[in-house]
Nucleic acid binder design. Structure first.
Length: 535
RNA sequence: GCGCCCGUAGCUCAGCUGGAUAGAGCAUCUGACUACGGAUCAGAAGGCCGGGAGUUCGAAUCUCUCCGGGCGCGCCA
């Protein structure tokens, strides 16, 4: 049982004894930033005093007295502090419980808060045009979307990873015409695509192939290979054309009409998205009879809802203006707005040799994601993309990220894992076998380095929960860095075996190291970064 | 003009539902190696949290306003 449950129960009893009624719905407990304030702290006296017409400091004192009278398990003392905080000091035994939890539950079960309850969520990300290679900015959305999917899987959701292919419309025609022109040795059309890749791909194209069909496959293959390098796999590559072929667009239009959300004006067909907060209504069918981009996309989202409880989209910053209309469209179809979540990833600036990176020659006007991966490697690329919140613009410095030194966070974290593996190897070579935890005297773990590792491990379940609720995988990378720092410190000061280390202490430290390995593996798995055994 | 995101240490960034003396990494300076990989560890220094006002016992966090930056604002995709 989580130590917090014990503390909460005890606080509830103390509140009741102090005459507080009704009891607060939630009793907040936190680990104070300042260790002088104890191991755990609650602001419950501050939060309830006002409604109860009490002085917070007095109420807090009353709670402390009651709790000291009959202290919860692990608790050595309870103190009132500041304006009315109730601070708990705990014996280190509470951390030994954490060690037991980590090792009992292991990589598959530790830090798996059930937030999804088995609900099915469709995570759509990347969704790039297949007419050119993925660019470096796509990398952020790709790594972010995949990590969101991993977080949701860990937190009890059924997840489908999906990407949408814009395989119809003007851009595809221009792309096909560009391939055909290059193949024929003619200049690329004015509104065609200029990058070197067009010529490379045209060279590969068999004579007589349909440039549109062949080019579509070629573009998708390119995307697939790039994503594969990052260990990202979409279960579904959804074709926009298939919506037309399967009458899905007409069905969506009919559905919208039946909800009274469609009207005609100036020869065009409009959707009344202003009913749900959009700043203007949107055209579905242009006066020339063509569909806008929005219409198949609505049909697509409607289709996704037929096979999912929840939708999660990852879009680039340049599409944020599109959010309101899509959410409005889904509400016009009768969906709850919370069922469609749209995350916007801000832009990334790439720096190399201290200079803003130039557009690559290969694709003309973009930096290719392939080049970034080739430059820094997939692990460093993923970790870096996920190191900060997608809400703010990112500066991706290739020199820092490519460095194989400890000033590079990804190597710092991976090195921590590799060190653990090396310790386990050395210990095994020495003929020492790790005993079951029941046979280990965990109370030998008293060094601050050891306790820090356990304190950090204790925060992993909350970190995973918050990362999932908040759609912030960067919280996991921050945790991984913290755990790695604790591990390196431990490694420096605490030897698992050798002179002056008793057999019993070796066993206790082995358990600790194994638990740390579990934590790091969980974090790295969520980030999609490998956990190497050596470096 | 309107909308979304951002503004925190020299640099890159954290900071869950408002909590106590605002954190980390890099860079800088100073220390620590006869043992599991020193590819490490420890210490120092570095801040009107963009400005102002408000709400609150308490604001980096919430509200308003101003300033600065990015991205959008089409019967393009």
């Amino acid at each position: 049982m989580d130590v917090r449950d014990h503390l909460r129960t005890a606080l509830q009893e103390a509140l009741t004894a102090a005459g507080i009624d009704p009891l607060p719905e939630e009793i907040a407990l936190e680990r104070p930033a300042n260790r002088d304030h104890g191991d755990w702290s609650s602001n419950v006296a501050l939060a309830t005093a006002k409604n109860a017409g009490r002085n917070p400091r007095e109420l807090g004192q009353q709670l402390c007295d009651a709790l000291n009278e009959n202290p919860p398990v692990h608790v050595t003392s309870v103190e009132i502090a500041g304006p009315g905080f109730v601070n708990f000091r705990l014996a280190d035994t509470w951390l030994y419980d954490v060690l037991g939890d980590v090792l009992d539950q292991g990589v598959d079960s530790y830090a798996t808060p059930d937030l999804g309850g088995g609900k099915h969520v469709n995570v759509e990300f990347v969704s790039a045009n297949p007419n050119k290679p993925l660019h470096a900015g796509h990398g952020r959305g790709a790594c972010y979307g995949d990590s969101i999917a991993r977080l949701k899987e860990r937190c009890g959701f059924e997840v489908t990873r999906e990407t949408y292919i814009n395989d119809r419309g003007v851009q595809m025609k221009n792309y096909a015409a560009s391939l055909a022109a290059s193949k024929a040795g003619q200049p690329i059309p004015e509104d065609g695509y200029q990058g070197a890749y067009i010529h490379e791909w045209a060279d590969e194209m068999p004579v007589g192939a349909d440039p549109l069909e062949w080019g579509l496959e070629r573009g998708m293959d390119s995307h697939r290979a790039t994503l594969e390098a990052l260990d990202i796999h979409h279960e579904i590559w959804f074709s926009e054309r298939s919506l037309v072929a399967n009458e899905k667009i007409n069905a969506a239009l009919a559905d919208l009409r039946s909800h009274g959300a469609v009207f005609e004006e100036d020869g065009a067909v409009w959707l009344r998205t202003t009913d749900f907060g959009d700043d203007k209504d949107r055209v579905l069918v242009k006066s020339d009879g063509d569909l806008t981009y929005l219409t198949p996309d609505i049909a697509y989202h409607r289709e996704k809802f037929e096979r999912s409880d929840l939708l999660f989209n990852v879009w680039g910053a340049d599409h944020h203006g599109y959010v309101a209309r899509m959410k409005a469209a889904m509400q016009l179809l009768g969906h709850d707005p919370d069922e469609l979540e749209i995350a916007i990833t801000q832009m990334v600036d790439f720096v190399k040799d201290g200079e803003p990176m130039k557009m690559s020659g290969r694709s003309g006007n973009q930096i290719d994601l392939d080049d970034i991966i080739a430059e820094v490697g997939p692990d460093a690329a993923r970790f870096t993309y996920l190191m900060q919140s997608v809400d703010s613009r990112q500066t991706f410095d290739l020199d820092e990220v490519a460095s194989r030194a400890m000033d590079n966070p990804v190597f710092y974290v991976q090195m921590a894992h590799a060190r653990i593996c090396q310790i386990l190897v050395k210990v095994a070579e020495a003929g020492i076998e790790r005993l079951p935890l029941a046979d280990v005297d965990t109370s030998l773990l008293t060094h601050e380095r050891e306790l820090d590792l356990l304190r950090s491990l204790d925060t992993l379940p909350d970190t995973v929960r918050i990362a999932c609720e908040d759609n912030g995988p960067h919280r996991v990378s921050a945790w991984a860095r913290e755990q790695a720092a604790a591990l390196h410190g431990f490694y420096h000061d605490c030897y698992v075996m050798g002179d002056g280390v008793s057999a019993e202490l070796t066993q206790a430290r082995l358990a600790l190291v194994a638990a740390s390995q579990v934590g790091l593996q969980i974090a790295l798995q969520l980030l999609g970064v490998s956990a190497p055994e050596s470096m």
